[in-house]
């Protein structure tokens, strides 16, 4: 059912003022050389829709990812209010540390695994209501207003990236709504991206711990750090054979 407004909506322009202020700050940072630690693209104005000019992605350098470190996982849980309810089979995990051991040599690679934000996501293909969708800027999300909880996307995902909320929740955080009966997964910290943070909670935590294994950025912008890194050193997709063109790339595997 669609409700149509018979009123003219004239948005009071507080958001634009907000944006101007923020844009000015970012500009100030950019003027001082050497201050910028990571790419700071200007935040889009709050009233502007996201566009396909950006494609957000992530680069994981498994060479520096530590096997005994799960800072990214903890940060994600904290950022999105994911609780450990003591039931590992049904508790949500948006990002997890995966250890991959070569049977022949015994060599172990440790890496974070989460939604790969595919360009052609199988979860979006199979979702009957269109609740699983890919935002213009490449972020794959679940619209929980239309998710009926059929879990078909969980069967379809090649990365086991999705969780189903198996119990009623309370105390959810305002920027990360989640609730019983819906499927959820890594949002690439979409609330931070829209805010102009230009980073995700996991990448921030990884950098804070001094590992710098996670790099967030715009794959469409040739001048972004992630694009430069990928151009120079390359990066692989997990299950590249499926042709999904993932937004998360890995180095060292």
């Amino acid at each position: 059912m669609r409700y149509k407004l018979d009123l003219d909506i004239e948005e009071v322009n507080t958001d634009r003022r907000d944006f101007l202020r923020r844009a000015a700050t970012v500009g100030g940072l950019a003027i001082a050389p050497g201050v910028i630690l990571y790419q700071t693209g200007a935040a889009k104005p709050a009233d502007q829709a996201v566009s396909s000019q950006q494609r957000w992605g992530m680069l994981v350098n498994t060479n520096v990812c530590q096997e005994d470190c799960d800072a990214c996982v903890t940060a994600c849980n904290e950022e999105h209010g994911l609780w450990d309810l003591g039931r590992p089979e049904t508790d949500a995990q948006w990002i997890r540390k995966l250890n991959v051991k070569d049977k022949q040599t015994g060599h172990v690679t440790s890496l974070p695994m989460m939604c790969q934000h595919c360009e052609n996501p199988p979860c979006v293909d199979v979702c009957p209501t269109g609740a699983s969708f890919r935002r213009e800027d490449g972020i794959v999300l679940v619209d929980k207003h239309t998710c009926i909880g059929c879990r078909y996307c969980m069967l379809a995902c090649p990365y086991k990236a999705r969780s189903f909320v198996h119990e009623p929740l309370q105390d959810q955080l305002p920027h990360s709504p989640r609730g019983k009966g819906c499927v959820e997964s890594c949002t690439l910290c979409v609330h931070k991206v829209d805010r102009g943070d230009n980073n995700t909670a996991c990448a921030e935590a990884c950098a804070k711990d001094g590992h710098q294994a996670l790099l967030f950025g715009d794959l469409n912008d040739p001048s972004s750090e992630i694009s430069k890194q990928l151009k120079q050193h390359g990066g692989t997709q997990i299950r590249a054979d499926l042709g999904l063109n993932t937004g998360v790339r890995y180095q060292g595997i």
Binding site: L5, D15, A46, A49, R135, E136, L141, D143, H145
Partner: peptide, 16 residues
């Protein structure tokens, strides 16, 4: 309802 679809699908984050 109007705003919710704009925010979720288009990433419009106005506060009104």
């Amino acid at each position: 309802l109007e705003h919710r679809d704009k925010t979720v699908i288009e990433g419009i984050r106005t506060t009104q």
